[in-house]
Each structure stands twice: as structure tokens, then as C-alpha cells.
Nucleic acid binder design. Structure first.
Lengths: 206, 206
DNA sequence: TGAGTCCCGTGACCAATGTCACATTACCAC
DNA sequence: GTGGTAATGTGACATTGGTCACGGGACTCA
């Protein structure tokens, strides 16, 4: 995908600069883009695909925070990039994903020179922070059934599909739960006519 | 407290500007500084005291995220201020707290003009984001006893005291739990010789 | 010193969720 | 088709943490 088609708010000059200095890279589905503890040398702008941002626990559970899609950027990579620091989270391509890697050295000058970039960075922080707040709310205040419901709803919205290609195990991992619990809750939802269950596939009815 | 004694990294010119345009304000212990949904018109730099950043649930529970102290600023107020947006969190003075309120209009020009301010803002985002990650980790992966332990440890560190003036109910609120549960866990810790319990007071032993 | 209030201790019980064991089913490769 | 494998269904049980009920202790204020 072309940068300027997605990031329409950027000045032409900024777009040129990004194209000139940035590096295009494509990640296959399932490939890890950023690893906990990894040193960050660039900020990733997403051009296509979908990236899962998650936190790993000791047993390798992948607790989902949020997804990133075209037009979004990894706030963590921005913050870290600005200080050439290490990351505390994991990022993985959920499907084939195209990114533009912008070298960390450019960050500061772009911030001062291009208003649209400045706005974009600020807005990115803001959105990610809000998303983190939502995550906290959910795990602090909600039961698993409500969280599952939100999860499916968001997943359907973000992929634009009603057929979610997910195994119960995957869902359990994302919610830091266990397969049996998810199976039971899904079954209950099916009995209430809110989903239909198939192998490796959850169909959202409403 | 004087601004320049705390924010020693700021350029003299920036300090002057802040003193000139900023407004000093003191909040009494327990006073709410920022409310969910409140429109934000300025960024708060903390000069003295301690501020509790928390999330309110439906029943008025005050789920603790983190504390801010002298030299720190509210990242949320910065982000929101930059877009003159509303807040999603609550901030309350835990003890008498002195802040400098910097009008939102200054933010963008200061970002481009003063490198130390730019660095400070970035670093603030970074720290708060990390703190949010820690919160998520704890509520997602840990049991109440581990969370309680971390809570007491952090509280002791941040106040520099071993005598924590906290009722069991307050602790329960901060951890989104119930008094009975906290009482039981504290009792267990006392039996293990890790704390001593008094009325309205938890003494950290180690 | 006595009443009132807040804080804390504690047992009984319940709901949500995690764990274990094992059966069943769907799909794939041959 | 057949065998194998991964996904799902399900009952039994354990654990954690929340709720309820109530008792007792400590501090306050008149």
C-alpha cells in the first residue's frame, strides 16, 4: 500500500522524507515484529495488515492488549525510539503486514518540523493510552463472559467479518483464561443464539 | 517548592516562561484534582505532595493506577491538553499538593522550542505507559496476595516510611478487593512476620 | 464512664474460574 | 474409507476471592 493513500494528513514534504529515509518491510502472518526487551531502532508505521500487541507471561501466555491496523503506529516503538530504549511488549503480525520503518534519528527533527507529524504522534499516544485504560477496566472490573463478548465484538469490527477464524484455545490465550472456560461460555452464548460455533470458527450472529 | 529546584533539567528561559505563564495552585489532602470526563485546559507539573491516579468504577471504587510525586507530571493531562480533550481518569491529592498549571496553548510551542521540555514530555509518556503495563501485568497475572505485597512495598518506597497509615478498607479499594480479603491476607503476612498490624496502620517489617 | 462509631477478626458460605480427565467430533492425508 | 490429529464438549473437583453475619476492640466525645 502506498504511504500517501493512508496517511493523507501528512504534508507532501513529510511523505517524501518518509519514503526516502524509511524502509519498507513485510512480515508474514504469525511473525514477531517486536520482542520484549528488544532494542528499538525505528518506529513502525503500518501500511497494511494487522498487528497484535500483547504481553507475555512466564508460561508464554499471550495476553492481548490491542490490535493495530493500517494508518496506525506503535506508540511504544515511538516512545522507545525517541530514547533508543528497549521495548516492554510484544508485537506480532496477525496476518501479512506491511510496515514502514522510520529510523529513530529522524523522530526529533520531524516532531519540530512537521506539524502533522507532531499531531500524529500525540494522537497515537492518546489512543494507545486510552486503549490501555480500557484493558485495565476490563480485567479489573469485568467477568470473563463480558470480556469474551467485548473481545468477539471488537474482533468482528476490526476484521470486518462475522466469521471469526479463531480456536477456543487462541481466545483463551488472548484473554489469559483456559480453553475449557471459553468453551463453556461460548456454548452458553450459542444457546442464547448470540453466536454459532464451528470448528476453528466462531460466527457472530447479531 | 521552587520550580527550578525540582525541574533542574529545564533551560532557564523555559523556567522563566513557566513561572510567568503557569499558575500555582495548592490542593488539600483528599481534594480531587482531575475528574473523569472533565475538560482539560492545562497540564499539571507537581511541585510537592503526592497525587493518586485512579480509575473509578460504577460503585465508586477507586482502583489505583499509580502515584505521582514532585518532578512528575500527569501524562494524561499532557495528552489531553494537547488536544484540549477530556480526561478518562481521576486524580486526587493524597496529601497537600502543590502544582503548577501550564495552559494548554503553550504546549505545542514549548515542544518545538525547548528541547528539555520535549524530552521531559516524551519521558513522562514513557514512564506512565510502563506503569500502565505494570498494572495490567499485576491484575492479569497475579493473585491478590502478590498484588498486596507489591502495593505495600511501593507505598513504603514512595512515602519513605515503614509505618503506612492505611486502613484495610482503603487498601481494599485501591486494589479493587474487599476489606475481609485484605484483612485475611494481612493477617497471614503478620503470621509470617512480614508486617505488624495496628489500627489504621500497617508496619512493614523487612 | 458510657454511648457511639469506626476498624478489625473470623467463620460460613457462594460464585467464578481454573484444572484434570476423558469422551466425542471434525477434518486431513493417504 | 481409515487412522491420526487437533479441536471441542463435559463432568468432577479445587482454589480464589467476594459476601454475609456478627463479635470484639479502640478511640472519641460528652
Amino acid at each position: 500500500m502506498e504511504l500517501k493513500k493512508i496517511y493523507t494528513q501528512f504534508e507532501p514534504e513529510l511523505l517524501e522524507l518518509l519514503e526516502e529515509k524509511g524502509m519498507h518491510k513485510t512480515f508474514a502472518a504469525g511473525e514477531v515484529i517486536l520482542r520484549t526487551g528488544q532494542y528499538i531502532k525505528s518506529t513502525a508505521l503500518i501500511l497494511s495488515g494487522r498487528v497484535k500487541i500483547y504481553r507475555e507471561n512466564e508460561e508464554g501466555g499471550e495476553f492481548l492488549m490491542y490490535f493495530l491496523q493500517a494508518g496506525q503506529a506503535c506508540a511504544v516503538s515511538m516512545i522507545c525510539a525517541l530514547q533508543a530504549d528497549t521495548s516492554e511488549i510484544m508485537a506480532k503480525a496477525e496476518e501479512e503486514t506491511e510496515v514502514l520503518l522510520v529510523p529513530v534519528e529522524l523522530m526529533e527533527s520531524m516532531m519540530t518540523k512537521y506539524r502533522s507529524w507532531y499531531q500524529y504522534v500525540i494522537q497515537t499516544y492518546r489512543s494507545r493510552f486510552d486503549e490501555m485504560l480500557t484493558v485495565v477496566d476490563h480485567i479489573a472490573f469485568q467477568n470473563m463472559d463480558e470480556r469474551l463478548e467485548f473481545y468477539l465484538k471488537r474482533y468482528a469490527e476490526q476484521t470486518g467479518k462475522k466469521m471469526l477464524e479463531l480456536s477456543h484455545q487462541q481466545i483463551a490465550d488472548d484473554l489469559n483464561s483456559s480453553r475449557e472456560v471459553i468453551s463453556r461460555l461460548l456454548k452458553k452464548m450459542e444457546q442464547q443464539g448470540r453466536v454459532k460455533l464451528h470448528r476453528n470458527l466462531v460466527e457472530v450472529v447479531k
